[in-house]
Write a protein that binds this DNA or RNA. Structure first.
Length: 824
RNA sequence: GCCCGGGUGGUGGAAUGGUAGACACGGAGGACUCAAAAUCCUCUGCCCCCAAGGCGUGCGGGUUCGAGUCCCGCCCCGGGUACCA
């Protein structure tokens, strides 16, 4: 593409200037109103990819826009630099993960700078930096002291071939190891947990006040999974001391229990299993525990997989006194409720599937509606087949059933959460070491502050065998107890990288702090984050963990107590897909942004990401995408020509400036200018950047017509300068250059324009006439028109009369000034 | 499986329950040019020779004077599913 403005020169020039002028460096004592705008810090996988570009384009737009609105905007950048990919690379090549990570941080930073996104780089942080590790570890020790970090046994994916723990990602759908192909099994290991469940209730209730996308809040609510229910004990037939305790959300359905189920991991399973059934139960148990949870929870009928076996024991239904068989089945998980259930196939679909396979009876205890043709019925209705509950509705019956169990001393009403404590142990090298020492005398002891950070040794071998490189290191593991000085064993697990990302936004407020992780005052100045921006894929885990950390740190006194939530507003952007799946380095389907920086420039690429669709929607990259990017470049060139056309001459562009009094043409463009300010400002606020770009394009088209037909200097200048200001947060380089050439100075230091409400008002209106819901005529009217006048105008229309065909108007609906609807 | 989204011209998309398709890409035509590129202008949902008109927002129902938008049931595509981040 020829005949265009000099992209490379202009973009390089302004990037250097923004950095040297420090327009976007903010100090904690800045007098302006404060705002904190943050994009989720990235895992450094090399040069920025399109997902990053999209993310930082939105973030940068907001930073520049809010700055023009007069705020001091904190806009920091950092790197989530621990993680599995660097360690995998180390195993493959033998080169230390830090080497990869540092190189990739360099590439990412370079490409982010070429995007023209501005940050306060003085605040940059990296989670693998010892100064960051130190404080991640400090927080962990505080959690440990507060009882929020603890150790217990938990099953992990174990590959017998590699002799190592696998991430879920490394286990293929068929249950084998992606590296060795061995069948992955579950193995119990002692693991560190953070007690997220202690905050379950607040994590749930806190969502209400957040300005987050509804779908994200819904996902989090479902994830926490609060359910009101009843726990009760059932006697085991033929024994005096054996009980099975179950949890149910439907105590009203107890009369419909036709069997009970115990989880394969349940400690009581062994006691409940009769000898004749032991071999089969044991075989099933081993098989089921190695299956993934997703597979186990599936209700899809798969004849190859055994869903459960009979244990030989019978439980006694406390409502009927009748015996029901106790099965062990894969779909009941030990981690939820009591690890055992009463099964009511009539009202639970998973129980229904199971009962069908094993020929167990199905009794309905709620009368479904006549037109119900499903299997299990979970809706409302009167109780049936339930003796003294018959006729009650479900809620009444739940209360009465629970009352009965309580009165018999068998059970109680309880609240269960689906949320589990957070398993943070990782048997890996490239992560933040857990700062705990295990002393034979003192037990688990936190490494004291003076000895932090605990850093992993560099002289390790990265082999795809054995335990974590830390566990097999000759000296790292062996230390002395900070308490008693005796020989002790150091914890060799590292932390989940979600730990690092759970507090980095706090550190950004005070990145240099060296006696505390961050000062409470600095956090009070900036937190909560006013606008957080990131991918929808983080809707649950990262956002939940960060919320948990904020609450826990507030309770420990590090975060001001009024700040209970880290992110006031959240925006989740859509993903870039190529060939149907998420664009990512691991999938190898990247379209690198760098090539566009060298041709059409960062401004065009940014504009493309803003223009191509709603920011929240996914976008499919296709063959035609390049044409759209070229289209954005063409638009910027059109702006360049019209804005600078009176000083230079461009082919095809005529700017006729006339020295005359204002006339209709000037009034019209002035009106359009003010409507544009209103439209773009509104679209900026509601995350509708694609329509904001469209409005700028439309206005530019009008401006061409205006300039060609004869323009007044003053009006023309106002129109152009407004256009440039409105464009400045989107395409900052070209806007800065045009502004500087026309007016001198920095467009990004200009105040955001405000529209004149009088000029925004429309002076004409199309009134639509509908007859029986179909559009039959359109009439130009005064926007202030009254109802009677509108109806007479409508009835006077020949088209309307023709469409009415002499029929009587039964009803008239008037929505002025847009529509009159006649019903005949 | 479960939880959460999405589906509108050839393409990306626009549309407080009220004119479906703004803006752009692609395509067609024209101006400029020796010619091309660049630029500027016009047209462009489908059916119909044109018009009048009809049909159209994944599929099937429903609510409403009026449904892309709200409700119910499907189909397809994507995200998450606790050790990818």
């Amino acid at each position: 593409m020829a005949e265009s403005y000099n992209v490379k020169e202009i973009e390089a020039k302004w990037q250097a200037r923004w950095e040297s002028e420090g327009l976007y460096q903010v100090d904690n004592d800045d007098p302006r109103p404060k705002a904190y705008v943050l994009c989720m810090y990235p895992y450094p996988s090399g040069a920025a990819h399109q997902g990053h570009v999209r993310n930082y384009t939105f973030g940068d737009l907001i930073v520049r826009y809010r700055t023009m609105c007069g705020e001091a905007v904190l806009s920091p950048f950092g790197f989530d630099s621990f993680g599995l990919p660097a360690e995998n690379a180390a195993i493959k090549t033998g080169i230390h993960p830090r080497f990869f990570t540092d190189a990739r941080i360099g590439e990412l930073k370079e490409s982010v700078k070429r995007l023209g996104a501005v940050y306060d780089w003085r605040r940059e942080l990296k989670s693998h930096d010892p100064s960051y590790i130190k404080w991640s570890q400090f927080i962990f020790t505080k959690f440990f002291e507060a009882g929020l970090a603890y150790k217990k046994n938990a099953p992990v994916n174990w590959c017998p071939g590699c002799q190592t723990v696998l991430a879920n990602e490394q286990v293929l759908p068929d249950g084998t190891c992606e590296r060795s192909g061995d069948l992955v099994i579950k193995r119990d290991l002692e693991q560190w947990f953070l007690a997220t469940t202690q905050y379950a209730e607040e994590l749930l209730s806190g969502l209400d006040a957040l300005e987050w996308p509804e779908r994200v809040k819904t996902m989090q609510r479902n994830w926490i999974g609060k359910s009101q229910g009843t726990k009760f004990k059932m006697a085991i037939a033929g024994t005096d001391d054996l009980f099975l305790e179950v949890f149910t959300t439907r105590p009203d359905t107890t009369f419909g229990m036709t069997y009970a189920v115990i989880s394969p991991e349940h400690p009581q399973l062994d006691n409940l299993t009769k000898d004749a059934f032991r071999a089969e139960v044991e075989g099933f148990r081993i098989d089921a525990t190695d299956r993934s949870e997703i597979e186990r929870q599936s209700t899809e009928v798969n004849s190859k997989v055994k869903r459960g076996v009979f244990t030989g024991s019978y439980a006694i239904n406390p409502f009927t006194g009748k015996e029901v068989p106790v099965y062990v089945a894969d779909y009941v998980l030990m981690g939820y409720g009591t690890g055992a259930i009463m099964a009511v196939p009539g009202e639970d679909q998973r129980d229904y599937e199971f009962a069908k396979i094993y020929g167990l009876p199905i009794i309905r205890t709620v009368q479904p509606p006549d037109d119900f043709d499903g299997e299990a019925y979970t809706g409302p209705g009167p109780k049936i087949n339930s003796d003294w509950l018959n006729g009650l509705d479900v809620d009444e019956a739940k209360a009465k059933a629970t009352e009965f169990l309580v009165s018999k001393g068998l059970g109680e009403a309880t609240i269960q959460y689906r949320l589990r404590d957070w398993l943070v142990s990782r048997q890996r090298y490239w992560g933040c070491p857990i700062p705990i020492v295990n002393c034979p005398n003192c037990g688990l002891v936190a490494v004291p502050f003076e000895q932090l950070p605990v850093l992993a040794p560099d002289d390790v071998e990265f082999l795809p065998t054995g335990d974590s490189p830390l566990a097999s290191h000759p000296t790292f593991k062996y230390t002395t107890c900070p308490n008693c000085g005796e020989e002790a064993i150091r914890e060799t697990d590292t932390m989940d990288t979600f730990v690092d990302s759970s507090w980095y936004f706090l550190r950004f407020c005070d990145p240099g702090a060296d006696t505390v992780p961050f000062s409470t005052e600095a956090v009070a100045t900036w937190m909560p984050v006013d606008q957080y921006i990131g991918g929808i894929e983080h809707a649950i885990l990262h956002l939940m963990y960060a919320r948990f950390f904020t609450k826990a740190l507030a309770d420990l006194g590090y975060v001001p107590s009024r700040i209970r939530e880290p992110f006031k507003r959240l925006f989740t952007q859509g993903m870039i897909r190529l060939g149907g799946s998420k664009m990512s380095k691991s999938k190898g389907n990247l379209i690198a942004p760098t090539k566009y920086f060298d041709t059409v420039g960062a401004d065009s690429l940014r504009l493309f990401h803003l223009f191509v669709g709603p920011p929240a929607d996914d976008f499919d990259w296709s063959d035609q995408t390049e044409d759209v990017i070229d289209g954005c470049f063409r638009f910027l060139n059109r702006v360049w020509r019209i804005a600078l056309g009176s000083a230079e001459s461009f082919p095809g562009v005529t700017i006729k400036i006339e020295d005359r009094a204002a006339d209709v043409r000037d009034k019209e463009i002035l009106r359009l200018t003010h409507r544009l300010i209103a439209k773009v400002s509104q679209d900026y606020e509601r995350w509708s950047y694609n329509t904001a770009v469209a409005a700028l394009m439309e206005f530019t088209n009008s401006l061409y017509r205006y300039a060609g037909s004869g323009a007044q200097q003053e009006t023309f200048d106002l129109a152009v300068d407004t256009l440039i200001k409105l464009l400045a947060p989107m395409a900052p380089h070209i806007s800065a250059e045009i502004w500087d050439r026309r007016n001198g100075g920095l467009v990004h230091a200009e105040a955001w324009p405000t529209p004149d409400p009088e000029l925004v008002k429309s002076d004409r209106q199309t009134l639509v006439v509908q007859i029986n819901g179909k559009v039959r005529d359109k009439i130009e009217v005064d926007p202030e028109i009254g109802e009677d006048a509108a109806i007479s105008l409508v009835l006077a229309s020949a088209k309307v009369q023709q469409a009415l065909g002499g029929k009587d108007v039964k009803k008239t609906i008037v929505k002025l000034p847009k529509m009159v609807s006649l019903v005949v």
